[in-house]
Design a protein around this nucleic acid. Structure first.
Lengths: 241, 241, 241, 241
DNA sequence: TATGAATGAGTTTTCATTCAT
DNA sequence: AATGAATGAAAACTCATTCAT
C-alpha cells in the first residue's frame, strides 16, 4: 500500500478553497502589516482550507493529520488546538463547505424570472456549482460512505436544503399556474432528479472516464452535458399539450 | 477503549453478498465427501464475501484487515495466502462485483422489444439493479474516491460498459427509424443520464435521508422514483411532434 | 472525544483548600482600594488553591497544567510566572499544606493535661485532622509514590515532625512517672502507630469502601473508629497491673 | 520535569515478581527446548511482571508504555495485543497482585490454632506480607488515588476480602467463647486496624524516613515493629480481667 | 492447507512550556 | 501584571504484514 502523503488530487478550483480573504482582512481594522505572526483567524482558515483538500481527496480515514499539518503554515499542534481532533476538523470542513454553497444560492434571484427561465437558471446554477466544486461533491460522497454520520451534526446542512426546496416549490407553483408545467411533480423528487444529473457526472467521473475514455470535465463535453441536463429537466416538468 | 470492529452498515441485501453456497456448492461439482476439512474454494469465497461487505461499508482505507479476518471462518493468514495484500483483496472484490452485474444483463433481451418498451425495460432493469446492489453502488463510489485506480485493472469492467452502450445504440437506432425517438441523442450521454438517475438516489441516500427526512429505499418512494425515472428518460428521448 | 478535565474528586472540605480569604484579606493589610485590578497575592493564592485540589485528586503526574489553569481566575502563563514549572507549583502546594497543620497543632496544649487525657487529646486531634484534611492525606500518599522526593525540600516538613515527637515524649515521660504508662514505648514508634491508625482509614478509604461496602467517612462509622483508635492507643501505652 | 524512563524504584523483592515458572513450565508438557520463541503464556507473564514494577513505581499516569515495553522481551505491540490498552494492562496487574495474596492466605491454617496464637499468626502473616510485597502496597495506594476505579472491576478483589473477614470472625468468636477476647469487637473494624498498622509503615515509609531519619525497612526496626503491632492488636482484643 | 503469535513503521493525540502582544 | 496563540517532544495506540509451528 502506497503512502503518498500529498493529496492524491487537488481538485480545488473553486470558490471554497481560494484563499482570497487576505485583502478583506486588511481592510478591516488591523492596519499596516501584511502578515502578522499571530492571526488566529488566518491560522484557522489556513488549516481549514488545507484540510478541505486533503479530506476531499482521501476521505476521512484516508486523510492523514500529519499530511494536513505539513501543508499548513502552522504545526500539527494547532490543528488540535483549534479543532480538537481529526474528526472535529473534518466536521468543521463540512460546515464550511455547506456554508459556502448556501451563500452563493442567495445570488440567484429565481423568483423574479419566468418559470421556465427560472428553472433553467436553477439547473444551470446547480450544474455549474457541482462542476466547479469538486471538493464539495467528494465530501458529500465521503459522507455517504460514513452513513452521513457527521453531516447530521452540521448546522448549515439542514437549512441549506430547506431553501432549495422552497425555491423549487415556488417555481413549480408559478409554472403550473401559468400553464407551463404539469401539476403532478413533487418538489423534493424534482430536486433529487436535478441533483442526480448534476452530481453523478462529477462524483463518478473517474469510473466514467475509465469506462468510456471520455473525461466529463472536458469543456466540450461539459457544455453538452449542461445543455442536455437542462433539456431533460424542462422536458420532464413541461406540460404536454 | 475499544473501537467497534464490525462493519458500520451491512447493506447486503442483494446478490453480490449473499453467501448462499454452502449447500448449493456441494450439489455442484465436488462429489464425494460432504464436508471436507480443507476447501480452498469455499475459504476463498467466504473471505471474498466478508470483504465485499467490509470494503463497501468502510471504503478501502476505512476497512480493517483484522475486522475482515475476524468475521471470516478462517484466519488473517489465509487472506494473505489467497489475495496477497489488502489491495489485492479489494481488487478481487471489485472483480467479483463487476462480474455479477454482467451475468445478469444477459437475461435482458431488449433487442427483441419495441424501442419504447425496450428503453423502459432497460431503465427499469438499471433502476432495480442499483436499488438492490447497494454494495455495488458503494464500491463504485469508493473507486471514484480512489480515482478509479483499481477498477482500471479489473477485466470485467471495460467489457461490461461496452455491452451497455451497444444495447442503447441499438435501441436508439431502432427508435429513430420507427419515428419514436429523436435523432440527436448520444448513446454514452444517455447512459450517463440513466446511470445518474439510478445511481444517485442509492449512493447518496444517507445525506438525502438526513436532509429531507425521507428514506429513498422505502417501498413507496422507490416505486415513485422508478416511475419518475422511466418517465423522465422517455420524455427525454421521445420525438416531439 | 474530549476528556473530563475537571478533578475527578474534589475532596476539599477542610482548611487547606477553603478559599475564604477574599474578605479576610482585605481587612488585613492592604487598606484602601477594595478590588484592585491586579492583585498578585490573590492571584497566587487562587492558583495555589486550585492546584492543591488538582494535585491531591490526580497526583503529580496525573494533574494537568491546563486543567489547573482552566479552573483558575487567571491564565496558564501566570502559573509559570509565579511558580516556574509544574513541579514548582506542586512543591508550593506541599509547602502550604504542611504549613497549615503546624499552625493548628499549636492550639493543642497537651502539656497542661493529665497524661492519659493528654494522650487521648492528641489521638483525637490527629484523628480529626486526618479525617478532615483529605487533601493533606492524599498529598502525603502521592509524595510516597514519588519517593518523598519533593517533600524533602519543604522547609515546614521536618520542623513539624520534631514538634510532634517532643509532645509525645513529654506525654510518655509524664505517664511513666505517674505510673500510668509502661516504660518501654518509643516515642517515634508510638507516633507511627497513631499515624497508621488515623491515616490509613482516610487514605485507603476507596479500596476499603469497595471491599466492604462501608464508607469510612460516614459519621457513625467515623465516631466508632475514633473511639476504637483512642482505645487501642491507650491500651497499648497503659501499664498493666 | 525529569523523564527517567527506568522504574524509579524496583521494589520487587517478593513472590509476585519472582519469575520462577520457567521450571514449572518445563515439567508440564512442553518437552525439551528451554526457550521457545513462541510462548504466549511466558510472553504475557513477562509483560505482566514488568508492568507490575513500572506501575507500582510510577502510578498509572506516571508509568510509560514505552518504558514497560523496553524492559520486556517483546515489543510494545504485544502489550496491546494481549492487554488492549494501558488501562487494560494496569487492570491485569491488579488482578494478578490480588490473586497472589489470596493464594498465600490459604496456607495459614489459623482455624486450627488457639485464638490468641491464631490472632498472632494472622497479624504476623499480614505484617510479613505487606513488608515483602511493596508492589502490592504501592498499587493499592495508587488505586486509592484513582478512587478505586479499576479495582472495582477486579474479580479477585472482593473474594479476597470476604475470606479475611471470615477468618477474623472465627478467631474472635472462638476467643470470646474461650473467655480470652472481649466480645464487642467488630471483625471489619479489627481488620481495618490490623491493616492500618501493617500497611502504613510500608506505604508511607518514604515520608516517614525523611521525617525521622529512620528507614522502617531496616531489619532491626522491622522486627521491633512486628512485635509492637502484634502486641497492640492482642492488647486491643484481649479481655481485661 | 491452515494458524495464532509476533512485529516495525506509522498515526493520532497529549503535554509542559514559551512567545508575541 | 497579564494574556491567548503557538510549539516540539513525547505519549498512547493502530495497521498491514510476516514468522514459526
Amino acid at each position: 500500500m502506497k503512502k503518498g502523503s500529498k493529496a492524491a488530487e487537488s481538485d480545488t478550483n473553486g470558490i471554497a478553497s481560494d484563499a482570497p480573504p487576505k485583502d478583506a482582512r486588511r481592510s478591516e481594522a488591523k492596519r499596516t502589516d501584511a502578515r502578522r505572526k499571530y492571526d488566529p483567524e488566518q491560522t484557522k482558515r489556513n488549516i481549514l482550507d488545507v484540510a478541505t483538500q486533503e479530506f476531499s481527496a482521501m476521505g476521512l480515514t484516508g486523510a492523514r493529520v500529519d499530511a494536513i499539518a505539513e501543508r499548513t503554515n502552522t504545526t500539527k499542534r494547532m490543528l488540535y488546538y483549534y479543532f480538537g481532533s481529526k474528526e472535529g476538523l473534518y466536521q468543521a470542513v463540512l460546515e464550511k463547505v455547506y456554508g459556502d454553497i448556501r451563500a452563493l444560492e442567495q445570488d440567484l434571484h429565481v423568483s423574479e424570472l419566468d418559470p421556465v427561465e427560472g428553472m433553467r437558471a436553477l439547473v444551470e446554477f446547480t450544474f455549474d456549482y457541482h462542476d466547479r466544486q469538486r471538493d464539495f461533491v467528494r465530501l458529500v460522497t465521503i459522507e455517504n460512505i460514513n452513513g452521513a454520520k457527521y453531516v447530521e451534526q452540521v448546522k448549515s446542512f439542514k437549512g441549506r436544503n430547506v431553501t432549495v426546496i422552497h425555491t423549487i416549490e415556488d417555481l413549480l407553483a408559478r409554472g403550473v399556474a401559468a400553464g407551463q408545467f404539469r401539476s403532478d411533480v413533487d418538489a423534493i423528487d424534482l430536486h433529487l432528479l436535478i441533483s442526480s444529473l448534476c452530481f453523478h457526472r462529477v462524483g463518478n467521473r473517474h469510473t466514467f472516464g475509465t469506462a468510456f475514455g471520455r473525461d466529463p470535465s472536458h469543456p466540450r463535453l461539459r457544455a453538452r452535458h449542461r445543455a442536455m441536463i437542462v433539456d431533460a429537466v424542462l422536458r420532464f416538468v413541461r406540460k404536454e399539450d
